Amino acid sequence: MGADEFDVELDARGLYCPEPVMLLHNRINDVAPGRVLRVRATDPSTTRDIPRFCQFLGHELINQQETDDEYLYLIRRGE
């Protein structure tokens, strides 16, 4: 699945810990189980926080990419 294949997007750019994960926690509830949420962030702490969020709450981290100034995550919502 490519970075452009998703159903819903969360733009957390410019926000810092813990805001991106707090927004993710709320936004994932708007995504149907099995659908994909793309998260865009600029906070490096998301590289630690978002994989843990997925692991603990049963969501699948499909892809994680880092560009020069942005972090992209594709998360498939679990049941």
Score class of each variant (00 low, 15 high):
G58R: 07
I62T: 10
N29I: 07
L61I: 03
E60R: 14
H25I: 03
N63R: 15
D68M: 02
Q55D: 12
R35G: 00
L72S: 04
R38Q: 08
D49K: 10
F53K: 10
Q55N: 05
A32F: 15
Q64C: 02
I62R: 14
F56Y: 06
L61F: 13
E19C: 10
Q65T: 05
F53V: 08
Y71H: 13
D30G: 13
Q55M: 13
N26F: 08
L72Y: 03
P20S: 15
N29R: 15
I62L: 14
T46S: 02
P51W: 14
I50G: 00
G34I: 04
D49P: 01
V21S: 06
R35C: 01
D69A: 14
D68V: 00
S45C: 14
N63Q: 12
D69N: 10
L37E: 10
L61H: 09
T67P: 03
T46F: 02
G34E: 05
T46P: 08
C17N: 07
M22H: 05
V31L: 03
L57Y: 13
T42N: 12
V39P: 01
L72K: 03
L61A: 09
V39L: 08
Q55W: 07
T42H: 09
L37G: 08
L37Q: 15
A41K: 02
E66P: 01
N26E: 13
N26M: 13
R40V: 09
L24W: 09
R38D: 03
P20G: 10
T47C: 09
P51H: 08
R40L: 15
L23G: 02
D68C: 00
R40S: 00
Q65M: 01
N29A: 13
R52H: 03
P33L: 07
C54P: 14
I50K: 01
D30R: 14
E66N: 03
I28K: 01
T42L: 14
L72M: 01
I28L: 09
D43G: 11
N29S: 09
R52K: 04
L72Q: 00
G34T: 07
L57N: 12
G58F: 01
V39A: 03
N63A: 05
C17S: 14
M22V: 09
R27A: 08
D43P: 15
F53S: 01
R52C: 02
L61P: 06
L37M: 13
D43F: 05
Q65H: 07
L23Y: 04
R38G: 02
G58A: 06
G34D: 06
L72R: 06
D69I: 08
R27H: 02
Q65F: 12
R38M: 15
R52E: 08
T47S: 08
S45A: 11
D30L: 13
V39D: 00
H59Q: 14
